[in-house]
């Protein structure tokens, strides 16, 4: 029973990071009705950005985080204009395969440019462990968690109070009505996509000191993010937070009870169970899955 405080702390730290990946995904789905299958590749690009800045310029990942925001914002706008804009009004299948194609291309650009080797970012504070009572955790984990929470809170505030956020929510609710009210939906989609990419790119930078960096590194995180967002209700941001904590709890407790080798099976089974029992998740609209939207 002495392990419980540690399990709780680990769950919260892990959940914070999953949340940052998941809010971007759920934001893009909520407003654009697109499941971004290339989401994990932007995590990977964030990790590589942190790695190269560290290896070549000896820049600390947390410094890179600041630089990464405009970089990923531009990357988001560029990828929207080039890839997503032409298919934004097409069928689900076209959008699914467009983002899948983007994902394959990005993964393999990374493979060709930077090889498949596992790379590591190891700042000086890498092995610093903080102890609090009976719990112990890594400094990088705390920073990643703190920044993730800050980001998510900022995004919530942005969506709630800013004009652009209101416009995005209006578009999410009814794209036709929004267009009739004079909202330039195309710009809204571009902005939404770019903000989602910034969140996930920042998450990648934060994850670099914690996990190995390689071309398909994004896959493990994005699969978790799908579980998280479906659990919380696709498109629902508060649901994504709750979903992150649940998935993190399943992962942490699963690792503790049955070992790390089988923990992934648990959350995929949880995922399948949710899809079957209540595909709309906790907060999603009932019946959304039948419209495919």
């Amino acid at each position: 029973m002495s392990a419980i405080p540690q399990l709780v702390v680990s769950t919260i730290l892990l959940g914070g990071i999953y949340a940052l990946i998941a809010v971007g995904l759920t934001l893009i789905f909520g407003v654009m009705r697109v499941v971004n299958f290339a989401h994990g590749e932007f995590v990977m690009l964030g990790m590589y950005l942190a790695f190269w800045a560290f290896a070549l310029l000896a820049l600390d990942p947390y410094l890179v985080l600041v630089v990464s925001l405009p970089v990923f914002f531009l990357a988001g706008f560029a990828s929207y204009g080039l890839v997503m804009r032409p298919v934004i009004r097409e069928s689900h299948n076209v959008q699914i395969f467009t983002t899948v194609g983007l994902s394959i291309a990005l993964q393999n650009v990374a493979l060709v440019l930077w090889t498949g080797d596992f790379r590591f970012v190891r700042p000086a504070y890498y092995s610093v462990v903080v102890r609090l009572g009976t719990t112990a955790f890594n400094v990088s984990q705390i920073v990643a968690f703190a920044v993730a929470v800050l980001f998510t809170a900022a995004l919530f505030a942005f969506m709630r109070w800013s004009y652009a956020g209101k416009v995005m929510r209006a578009t999410a609710q009814d794209r036709q009505a929004a267009a009739l009210m004079g909202i330039d939906t195309d710009r809204v989609y571009g902005l939404t996509w770019a903000i989602g990419i910034v969140c996930v790119g920042a998450a990648g930078v934060l994850l670099a000191p914690l996990y190995p960096v390689y071309p398909t590194a994004g896959l493990q995180f994005v699969l978790i993010a799908y579980v998280v967002v479906v659990l919380g209700g696709l498109g629902d941001m508060a649901g994504a937070l709750l979903g992150s904590l649940i998935v993190a709890a399943v992962e942490v407790i699963g690792s503790y009870v049955i070992g790390t080798a089988w923990k992934e099976v648990l959350y995929f089974l949880l995922f399948i169970a949710v899809l079957l029992v209540r595909p709309a998740g906790f907060f999603g609209q009932r019946g959304a899955e039948q419209l495919g939207a």
């Binding site: 789905f29 689900h92 699914i96 479906v230 992934e264 899809l275 595909p279 899955e289 039948q290 495919g292």
Partner: peptide, 23 residues
């Protein structure tokens, strides 16, 4: 089981199934 699911939901369910078998 996934009969009610359409579009992206069905895709996600099938990915999850293949991942379980992979593990």
């Amino acid at each position: 089981l996934s009969n009610r699911l359409r579009g992206p939901y069905f895709v996600l369910a099938t990915i999850a199934f293949s991942q379980v078998l992979l593990i």
